[in-house]
């Protein structure tokens, strides 16, 4: 498992789009949005420049996990690598787990660097335990997004996988309230948005910033996304293994 994890991480870090989309873009957006709206106070009584560290950390981490799963798996499938991998003495479960862990591993820098930017640029300060809790919930919060990427990777053709993942990424960010407060969306979209893992992951983070208690419905929704997507990914990966 660690072997494939290592290969995945190496390969993902060498993709120039990773640095651009998972690290540079969220930090850039953070600096831009916080300069424009930073002094305002949003829902939950936190300053926007503080709330934005959560939004943009989730934004970057989502790209990290999506790009490390969806397009990558689809490509490995289409070039025939997955078939060759089936001939090595490694179990399908080890491959799947290695993939998900690799995706989470490369999400780490995306989260940490945005938080760090908040500290450096706007002096965001929290107690140590709150930083740690924030890091933990954001990290765990993108697990379902990684599972979703795996579903696309095993189900979609390599030509459409990148576009599909990117489109989904935009929808998750926009409807999940990462670019603008959820409250300005039409109520129908708010209903949908509140079911998305992007919103729920960020909401866990915002609550930690605001010192409010954890919303357990968020935990349940994230868990449901994870379980459903993992099962679908498993089913599609088995279908891939048998056909072709």
């Amino acid at each position: 498992m660690t072997g494939y994890l290592r290969l995945q991480v190496l390969s993902a870090l060498r993709d120039p789009r990773y640095i651009m989309l998972a690290i540079v873009a969220p930090i850039g957006f953070y600096l831009l949005f916080s300069a424009l709206f930073g002094q305002e106070t949003g829902a939950g009584g936190i300053q926007t420049q503080t709330a934005l560290i959560v939004s943009m950390a989730v934004f970057g981490a989502m790209w990290a996990v999506l790009s490390a799963t969806g397009p990558r798996i689809a490509q490995e499938r289409s070039v025939g690598w997955l078939r060759q991998l089936q001939l090595l003495p490694v179990s399908a479960a080890a491959i799947l787990t290695g993939r998900l862990l690799a995706a989470l591993l490369i999400a780490g820098p995306a989260i940490v660097l945005v938080l760090l930017t908040g500290v450096i640029a706007h002096g965001v300060s929290l107690e140590a335990w709150r930083w740690l809790a924030l890091l933990a919930v954001l990290w765990i919060g993108v697990v379902p997004v990684g599972a979703l990427g795996m579903v696309i990777g095993y189900a979609a053709d390599s030509e459409v996988a990148f576009g599909l993942v990117y489109g989904l990424y935009m929808v998750l960010a926009a409807l999940g309230g990462l670019w603008m407060p959820m409250s300005i969306l039409p109520s129908g979209l708010q209903t949908i948005g509140k079911l998305l893992p992007s919103y729920r992951a960020a909401d866990l983070g915002w609550r930690i910033l605001a010192g409010r208690t954890i919303d357990f419905s968020s935990v349940l929704i994230l868990l449901a996304w994870t379980v459903v997507c993992a099962l679908l990914a498993l089913a599609f990966s088995r279908r891939t293994a048998r056909s072709h």
Binding site: S11, A12, R72, V79
Partner: peptide, 14 residues
């Protein structure tokens, strides 16, 4: 197998 590329983005030694 007859065809199939290798894992993209990694080196031979890896």
């Amino acid at each position: 197998l007859q065809d199939g590329s290798l894992m993209p983005g990694v080196r031979v030694a890896e």
